[in-house]
Design a protein around this nucleic acid. Structure first.
Length: 638
RNA sequence: GCUCAUGUAGCUCAGUCGGUAGAGCACCUCCUUGGUAAGGAGGAGGUCACCGGUUCAAAUCCGGUCAUGAGCUCCA
């Protein structure tokens, strides 16, 4: 059943909002109708789906809205399940929701789905889409449902139903020979699923629990037009090209060695140079901003980790202890206890606070082998860690400073789009409720004062304190977590940290953990993917490649290089016995930002021909002008 | 850790039916001295991840281990 409605004069894309029943000019009973309609917008027919809101109004979705995508993808997942059940009748279905990008369906089957089978399933889906089978909705009670799915021999559905209260009414959706327990809504019919692709298969635990059976999952994506599908697939390709592991190899930045171990990073000269440049900048900014930089060991005795509580609640994340002279030592998974020990080494007056201790501290964590991923998830990494120890009345100021400081540093690296999350008190937290309230308010206040938009993750805080997380968004709309600002009500208590107040009495200070990059490894990986290897000039390992056209011009090239080096610009010279085209290709592939080509005419006029990476030939200009231009670009981000 | 896939030269990859290895790039030498993304010739480079099994014979088939990848689970 499809209904024609006329929507106000708005573009299709914009029109995904709430429509009240009286705007839908018809006398349908939504509960009985298909949950899909066709709307006429500016004379064009548009497929839409709706869901019924709690106030019994209708919410109309087009594909451009998040809900619309959900409905569309979820419907595609039912189509896929229909295809799978048709081709492999013995496979048992479980669940198949839409996800952030597309959908999946988990099946119980002994064998995995092969690529050939995936293609067959796709073909069957095409066929079923051409048949344009309606998705029909039906309400049933729980016990009817159990009976139905027992008859269909779908034990997983029966299990789900058995977990639902007796008298609850449920909905089932049917497309052709496939019936699924489902809340809906769905689109009108399988013919509306125009462009889709099954992307990959994997294992997944039933109900997400690793003690349960491993099911076989198929992931897919779909769009109303093949153009959108093509765009999506080309974005995936682009993401592959930007993969920091691929670029890390191509640009000779880092590696991991089997002989050393997974998740342990070797920083090559180029990567290391960049890391040193980044660290140098980080240190200078911290020194300038009232931080005291400290250095602490990589291991500590069991007693320390007992006091900090890590041996109680974080032991699985730590490497096994090293025994020396009957004492157990652990590799540090965190820097906090060390910074706390520095604080506790002497008495502190309230006049000294806030104390801000910062360190590029290398920690080691045991991550399960399957979770390691390039630079993003490793077993040894360096956090740009700091602990701010302050009085309650200083908290607001500190958080606000911190937020500004973090943003300033992130922007330096070319990041512009941020997503900010505030995570609040979870179940089973430690610390006084009034401390939590105060800390949450301080975080909220700082965000509001700076006019930063943020989302609240209720109950998403760590057990020891609320936090702000900042994620970076890249050109492909992917987000990368780096900055985190966390209150800690646990460690000051455990370590009995104190300061002497104006009342000459000891008081417990507040402590804030924070990392701006998160870790050098992950941040570097993020930088690589964000810039696709085309880094801002100030941090490039080689900023300029001077390319003499022939060996007669090498002396002049060296002169140019010397002038650049005098200004601390990292300039190299390519004297290979190759044609200029070869040298340019080489420099382009190394993504060196500036290439200065010198030959007869440049030498005669004391000039260089400038070629900018990704921009091409910029023409011949005097050396001094070229150098000034390069320097300006370097300094513009300083 | 779990499921599945993969592992051949520094890199990217061929290698059919089981007969102990190939290409391009990179590297080295020589020639070439050039004008905006690969000039030419030659050379060197491999215990086919590792261990075991089947076989007259294993890069190839089987088992195990390790590593990597995609997910799952985990993630202070």
């Amino acid at each position: 059943m499809s209904i024609k409605i006329t929507l106000p004069d708005q573009s299709i894309r914009e029109y995904a909002g709430l429509i009240t029943p009286n705007q839908v000019a018809m006398d349908i009973s939504p509960r009985l109708a298909d949950s899909a309609i066709v709307a006429e917008v500016n004379g064009k027919l548009v497929d839409m789906s709706y869901s019924i809101q709690s106030d019994s109004s209708l919410k109309i979705h087009t594909f451009s809205s998040a809900e619309g995508k959900e409905v569309y993808w979820h419907s595609t997942s039912h189509l896929m399940a229909q295809a799978v059940k048709t081709l492999f009748p013995n496979v048992k279905v479980t669940i198949g929701p839409s996800i952030e990008n597309g959908f999946y369906y988990d099946f119980d089957r002994v064998e995995s789905f092969t690529d050939e089978e995936l293609l067959k399933i796709e073909e069957k889906m095409q066929e079923l889409s051409r048949e344009n089978i309606p998705y029909t909705r039906k309400e049933i009670c729980r016990n009817e449902g159990i009976k139905l799915f027992q008859d269909l021999d779908e034990p997983y559905k029966v299990e789900i139903l058995e977990g639902i209260p007796e008298n609850e009414t449920l909905t089932i959706y049917t497309n052709g020979n496939f019936t699924d327990l489902c809340r809906g809504p769905h689109i009108e019919s399988t013919g509306k699923v125009k462009a889709f692709k099954l992307l990959k298969t994997s294992g997944a635990y039933w109900r997400g629990d690793e003690r349960n059976k491993m099911l076989k999952r198929i992931y897919g994506i779909s769009f109303p037009t093949s153009k959108e599908l093509k765009q999506y697939l080309s974005d995936l390709e682009e993401a592959k090209k930007r993969d920091h592991r691929k670029l890390g190899k191509e640009l000779d930045l880092f590696s991991v060695a089997d002989e050393i171990g997974g998740g342990l990073i070797l920083w090559h000269p180029n990567g290391s140079l960049m890391r040193n440049i980044i660290e140098q900048y980080w240190k200078e900014r911290h020194w300038d901003s009232g931080y005291q930089l400290v250095t602490t060991p990589h291991i500590g005795k069991a007693e320390l980790w007992q006091t900090s509580g890590h041996l109680g609640f974080y032991k699985e994340g730590m490497f096994a202890p090293i025994e020396v002279e009957g004492q157990e030592y652990y590799l540090k998974p965190m820097n906090c206890p060390f910074h706390i020990m520095i604080y506790k080494n002497s008495m502190h007056s309230y006049r000294e606070l806030p104390i801000r201790l910062a360190e590029l501290g290398t920690v080691y964590r045991y991550e399960r082998s399957g979770t390691l991923h390039g630079l993003m998830r490793v077993r040894g990494f360096t956090q740009d860690d700091a602990h701010i120890i302050c009085m309650p009345e200083q908290v607001n100021d500190e958080v606000e400073r911190l937020l500004l400081f973090s943003m300033e540093i992130l922007k330096k690296f070319g990041f512009k789009d941020f997503q900010i999350y505030l995570s609040t008190k979870p179940e089973g937290s430690v610390g006084a409720p009034e401390d939590w309230t105060m800390a949450e308010n301080a975080l909220r206040k700082a965000l509001n004062a700076q006019g930063f938009a943020f989302e609240v993750d209720e109950g998403g805080g760590a057990f020891y304190g609320p936090k702000i997380d900042i994620k970076i968004k890249d050109a492909l709309n992917r987000s990368w977590q780096c900055t985190t600002i966390q209150f800690d009500f646990n460690l000051p208590e455990r370590f009995k940290m104190e300061y002497i107040g104006p009342d000459n009495q000891p008081h417990r200070p507040y402590m804030i953990h924070r990392a701006i990059f998160g870790s050098m490894e992950r941040f570097f990986g993020t930088l690589i993917e964000f810039h696709a290897g085309n880094f801002p000039v100030w941090m490039c390992p080689t900023q300029v490649m001077v390319i003499p056209v022939g060996e007669n011009f090498e002396a002049y090239a060296k002169e140019v290089q010397a002038q650049l080096k005098k200004l601390k610009i990292r300039a190299e010279i390519d004297t290979a016995s190759e044609k200029i085209g070869y040298k340019i290709r080489d420099a382009e592939m190394k993504k060196i930002p500036y290439m200065l080509i010198v030959g007869q005419k440049e030498m005669e006029s004391n000039s260089v021909s400038v070629r900018r990476h990704t921009h091409g030939d910029m023409g011949m200009i005097p050396v001094a002008e070229a150098i000034q231009k390069i320097q300006e670009e370097i300094e513009s981000s300083l």
